[in-house]
Design a protein around this nucleic acid. Structure first.
Lengths: 360, 360
DNA sequence: ATGAAAGCGCTAACAG
DNA sequence: CTGTTAGCGCTTTCAT
């Protein structure tokens, strides 16, 4: 019955000012502060059980809902966490985001996710979020030496990094073990008999790009492969197109690799494109390994062998790291490293140990 | 002096209380309200140019940032828009979200995106968002006859639907023309000579599922195909697994279709799985058409023929619809319908008109 | 166990 | 043009 009037009049009578703590108080004949106490789980014990019940009932009847902005203004905590994402459309990101949101929501926080386009600077976005009163920040966008790191250290609420780290390791982070992932990939290829393995590296100003490249170089060295048999080409962005171009450069080299390890799956798909353009077969002529195991790479042709990283766990870990900071528990590890896993599919195949690739 | 204690204790000296409008005022020897005016684009004309400049400078020097919570409390507008998503991890959603966020951010709004898991009810999530003071809501989750619709009409700020609509068309919406999409798919197959075409329908309580099915049935009727040659199996969820099961049921029928139209790409990939399990080739034995053109379906094997929907535009349209409502401009169209487009790839192939499929 | 009073940071009348 | 005043809805001492 209650809403008869509100729906009866005009279309936008809607602005129907929500009931406040005062309305509830009036209805119960108590003081607003008593209502505040009764409705706050932490303070409820300070109010008589029967009164508390009456208040609760009245609140329900009125459809009362706490005004978070007012509460936040008073307490200095908004219950909002800002998340900076590099590109929401990147298929790798949603699981991370989902992990973050789950953990945070469970503790009553809401997340406000901002996609960092090419326009608005990261700094500015951070400041905007701070203006919104966020209690903490999760950055998935940070580059290796990023001004935003110092900015955050200076003026920001607690901040954690996810998927990427800063060069100096100043900010706590949750990320996959990039070097270990590359080791997995290289060892797999070496075990299959590959002796000439190329690498399509990601952007070198991003930790994943730099560290995966480092992991690749270390692993091939350990395997005893010569540097000239393990060429590296850098893709400037994590895109299929950039992967294609870099792969084309790699294939144009004097001695063609029999296998290519890409710094991520998008790049690996670009390698597929390049191979097709060059009239080469995968895995017949060239084996390919990706990184991330993004959705549906098991459906491409051939199904992509790749390094699976624990994206959801990564998000959850980052959120927990932040939650620790928010609760004043700064004791936990600062840098959480998650173990990757090799997923072998159809894009890698054994190579006869002494068969040499056609020169040209 | 008052807060000396609060910052004295605690480990987080960091809490370096942000400068307020008062601090800026003190530094300039003016009244806080003058600062408020000088810093508000809309009220700036009320203050002397030189004073405004001084204030601006002081604000910058202090690193002052407007406290949105306080402003919101005062003005009753938070600048926050709530978005309810069915599943952030669904590859189809990010472009929509991106379109929404772009439009909204441009107008100074921030979006808070909530993923509706299987737990928290939609109603409750909406209420939570309202408690956060959102100025408007975008729902991508609504089912055909959803209680949340009435709930929103009653008590909520302006609401728009995206991608889905409610049965009665009560709420404004931006969505793809589902029926037209199916027509495109069916006409394409008929033109290729297919006479027995099956449909894997999506969940029937969701508008896309129901309307695409309706569109399918209408189109095959127009094409003069008999109902028994155009069987429909419903998948309970938009997942690859459900698509596989439904396709298996379809293939088990007495007369096997020579083509299958799936209600979305995820289901279509499930059809691929089912075909593989049944030892059937696509497109050799059965042609397949998807819907949505989600990322990378051009890379699967065979590349999927599908109906591309204007996801980003859809998001943008929904945001503009909401912006109109927020500005009190209710004049625009209530239901925006976007035209889909057929993308022909390798999963559909011509079928000789009189060749009949092997009985069993 | 409850009421009174103050104030978080900001904006919007209303004076001058 | 600028200062004064009041108060958005809530929490939190401090008194009873």
């Amino acid at each position: 019955m209650k809403r008869t009037l509100s729906s009866a009049l005009g279309p936008r009578t809607a602005a129907a000012t929500r009931p406040t703590i005062k309305d509830v108080a009036a209805r119960c004949g108590v003081h607003p502060s008593t209502v505040s106490r009764a409705l706050s789980p932490a303070m409820k014990h300070l109010v008589a059980a029967d009164v508390a019940e009456r208040i609760q009932a009245a609140a329900n009847a009125l459809g009362y809902r706490l005004n978070m902005a007012a509460k936040g203004l008073r307490t200095g905590r908004s219950g909002l966490i800002g998340v900076l994402a590099p590109d929401i459309a990147d298929p790798g990101f949603p699981p991370v985001l989902s992990g973050i949101a789950d953990q945070l929501n469970a503790q009553g926080y809401a997340t406000i996710v901002v996609d960092v386009g090419r326009d608005g600077s990261e700094q500015d976005l951070v400041d905007r979020l701070i203006a919104r009163g966020v209690d903490g920040l999760v950055l998935a966008t940070v580059t290796l030496r990023d001004d935003v790191v110092q900015h955050c250290l200076d003026a920001a609420p607690p901040v954690v990094l996810v998927n990427r780290v800063d060069a100096a390791g100043l900010l706590p982070s949750a990320a996959s073990d990039d070097a270990a992932g590359m080791r997995l990939a290289v060892e797999h290829l070496v075990a299959l008999g590959h002796q000439r393995i190329g690498h399509i590296a990601g952007p070198q100003h991003i930790s994943t790009g730099a560290r995966r490249r480092g992991g690749f170089e270390a692993s091939v060295r350990v395997a005893g492969l010569a540097a000239r048999h393990t060429p590296v080409e850098v893709a400037e962005t994590y895109t299929r197109a950039a992967g294609r171009e870099a792969a084309l450069r790699l294939l144009a080299r004097r001695t063609r690799p029999t296998a290519i390890v890409a710094a991520n799956d998008l790049l690996a798909l670009g390698v597929y494109d390049a191979l097709a353009a060059a009239g080469l077969a995968c895995p017949g002529d060239v084996s390919v390994v990706g990184h991330n195991d993004m959705p549906f790479v098991d459906m491409v042709s051939p199904p992509l062998t790749t390094v699976r990283i624990a994206q959801r766990d990564m998000g959850e870990a980052a959120a927990r790291l932040l939650l620790d900071r928010l609760a004043g528990r700064e004791t936990t590890t600062d840098h959480i490293v998650l173990a990757p896993e090799l997923v072998i599919r159809g894009s890698t195949i054994a190579r006869g140990p002494d068969r040499s690739a056609p020169p040209r």
